[in-house]
Design a protein around this nucleic acid. Structure first.
Lengths: 270, 270
DNA sequence: GTGTAGTTTGAATCCTACG
DNA sequence: GCGTAGGATTCAAACTACA
């Protein structure tokens, strides 16, 4: 026990999100970015808190049960995030209409204090092929502080204003989905991860709400976009990922990125 | 008991939302648009940089003691809405980050099936004066059907596509806030209602998800924007409003609107 | 009437440091 | 904990006044 946060800095931690969060000390990270899974098909493997009894037949699991399990799962990891977050830190959680309402409710119930809901407006969303709904063109990010009383969170107002043509940055962000050279593909040309987030999105998040040298935690690291952007901008990262395959991709990805200091030194020489 | 929905058509019903909803028959309306109180929880005064005070929403109807009380309230009116809604009908609920997560969760728990979450992107939102957050530039609408199994809801895909320059309509809508001549003002020039919605927003909603002659119910009618747009486009309306003052404004507003048939006849002559 | 400059205002969970 | 002083902070659109 009584581990120091330094042991975890710039590490990729392989394992279950909740278990691994529990190993981190209280009040130790400056920013959390969480992109939790919400594929209801995975419910049995993923967010059964109690592995002992799993219904064999899916039909026996009515919708409310499945929502309840998901809520329990989210409450667990969010509670750990709240504990680990510094009082001056903030948390970002991204989701879509399948899960973001439940997450927002859970966060408010735990006492997180919402600062903004940000809409990621996709410039190139997937069309609705059957023409029975509106094109699903957005995802939502919740930005919150540890609790209502928490003071002193970082918001680089002037920097964001500069990036927005000199006008105050708004809560609607126009960013393309992750595609092209940035999208990780395996040897067969298949995408490595189904929901890889664009680096631009993480750049907004990290530049808006951290200072250089801050510690950024991502409990669902996936392909490691959070780590990649953190490294590029001189922030420390702690990445938790339960899938060994993904974690190996993250390692490769991060190894290929020069860290800020290196980059600055090279830049000075030229 | 056993009232017929025809008794309520094109009526403004003065009274408590939940009580009055209970008088409506099962499976009787085609569309519900609900703009419930947001539970803003504003605590302090806010001053602009030029030392003028922001006119905050401090109406009695937005006061709740806790999340729990708010949730109970929402569960009640949403349950009645679900009962009253035809299986081929849909419901829209608008909110902001203060309440929309709770509403979405409650709706999912009740078995409503979400079709889209729509982001109303405001072209002219109020800025963040203190520079401590992003400009709060959006509100969210949840569009849902009665339950997962419900079939045959109306979505005027081609019409919406036409309104969107021939491209499939997306879930992000760019609409100014309600201001100018459309904003109702009393004799002293004060706004009648602190949160009047723009007609354009309701036009999108009603044209997308109803046919002519359909019945549109608004349980929190306010200044009656839903009724006004319904009347203009040949839909029937049922408006519930608990405040006598507001309901009188609605009556005046609706009286000044020609109904669709009248309008078409005049238009034919010219 | 027309054009320009100045004023007003909108669903807002809007500060921090120091006694 | 509280009270107070210090200091940094706004965008778009409608409306008004006036030339």
């Amino acid at each position: 026990m009584d581990k120091n946060i330094k042991e975890f800095e710039n590490k990729i931690i392989l394992g279950d999100c909740i278990e691994k969060l529990k190993e981190l000390p209280d009040n130790s990270v400056d920013l959390i970015f969480a992109d939790p899974p919400y594929n209801l098909q995975l419910k049995n493997e993923l967010w059964r808190p109690n592995q002992t009894k799993v219904d064999a037949v899916d039909d026996e699991w009515d919708k409310f049960d499945s929502f309840e399990e998901y809520d329990t799962f989210c409450k667990e990891w969010l509670k750990e995030c709240q504990r680990v977050l510094k009082p001056t830190g903030t948390i970002w959680v991204i989701g879509a209409y399948h899960n973001i309402f439940r997450i927002g409710t859970t966060m408010q119930n735990l006492g997180f204090w919402v600062l903004n809901d940000i809409t990621w407006v996709k410039s190139n969303p997937m069309p609705n092929f059957r023409g029975v709904r509106f094109t699903n063109a957005t995802e939502t990010l919740i930005w919150a502080k540890k609790n209502e009383e928490a003071k002193g969170y970082t918001f680089n107002y002037q920097l964001m204003k500069k990036y927005n043509d000199g006008k105050q940055m708004r809560s609607d962000w126009y960013i393309p989905i992750c595609n092209g050279g940035e999208r990780l593909k395996d040897a067969e040309g298949n995408k490595v991860h189904s929901t890889q987030k664009p680096e631009t999105l993480l750049r907004y998040v990290i530049l808006a709400s951290t200072k250089e040298g801050d510690i950024v935690l991502d409990p669902f690291a996936g392909t490691g976009t959070t780590g990649a952007v953190a490294k590029k901008y001189g922030r420390k990262y702690i990445l938790i990922e339960r899938d060994k395959g993904y974690s190996e991709w993250i390692q490769k990805r991060l190894d290929s990125i020069k860290d800020r200091q290196e980059w600055l030194e090279e830049h000075d020489k030229s």
